[in-house]
Amino acid sequence: MIHWLTSRHTVTLLNVFTRSRYAPYSDAGFVHENDELSYVSAMRLREDELFLRRIKESLPKGLKNNLNMHDLNLKDAPIRLRVPIDQVCNTPVNSADTSLEKIRKALTRQSELGTMEAIVLPAGLGKDVDHLTVREAAMPFTASLPAAFYEDLPFMATHPSARADLETLTSAATGRNDPLTEIICHTGDSAAEAIVRKRKLVLNYASQIDDEAGVVISNFATHYGGGERLWVNKLWHSSFA
């Protein structure tokens, strides 16, 4: 995002499954179960807002308004699909899940406003059903827009199926005559500076990510010289070459 923002693009984040009880590193366990959903969801919203502030503070004044977030206020998988938290990565996308249409409606709205010139979506590595649901909902837009798939972390670094999942995704794209190829995005910082910055940003989500996971997520960028690898379609190359 920093790469695109400093290149004077506007970035709009669709924050999808934000109604949640998942905050394992917080004090939510002491909250009455009737209040847990609202308590955790509000806590996670504050973390999202802090993340935005931290990104914006490094931007020139004239670019700070180029980053926006829209909250879709949808329930995450343990609530929406009634699956245990340890089964989130073993649950397939439900074609009857109403969140699919709600995500597509939000993306269509952005398109109608003329604000969506490209789309970035999760690769779905590690089979997290929420990530896969977002990917499934957004896939129709990749046919007509420059599209990039980001490598889900920490799954890309830790989940045993992640590399096979990535191969499946890229093979499927090739099968529809729109091969995905990799690009590396850099912020302009040195590799060491980029990794330190990424770790600080990740640890803003203190209710969900502990120090150990923060290290895993940020250090994965060492594979790319401190950058981020994306898998992009042909339209991305022709639009942003």
Rank of each mutant, 00 (worst) to 15 (best):
L125E: 01
G29M: 08
N66L: 04
A148M: 05
T10P: 02
D128K: 14
N68E: 11
G62S: 08
S38Q: 13
P60V: 05
L132E: 15
V134N: 00
V40T: 01
T108N: 11
N34V: 15
L13E: 12
L45S: 10
V40A: 06
L100D: 02
I85L: 08
L113T: 02
K56D: 00
L121H: 01
A147W: 00
E151H: 06
T91Q: 07
T91I: 06
S20H: 08
L63T: 01
R80K: 09
R109N: 09
A147T: 03
K105N: 13
Q110M: 03
P84W: 10
D97P: 07
K102H: 11
T142S: 09
D27R: 11
Y22G: 03
Y39L: 06
P122L: 06
H70Y: 09
V40I: 09
P60D: 11
S41A: 13
E151C: 15
N65Y: 09
D71N: 13
L132P: 01
D130W: 09
D27I: 02
P140S: 08
M69P: 06
E49A: 11
D48A: 12
T12M: 03
N68F: 10
D71H: 12
T18H: 00
A138Y: 01
F30D: 12
D71Q: 12
A118S: 08
A28L: 10
E101T: 15
R44G: 05
G29E: 10
F141T: 02
K56H: 09
D48P: 02
S99P: 10
Q110D: 00
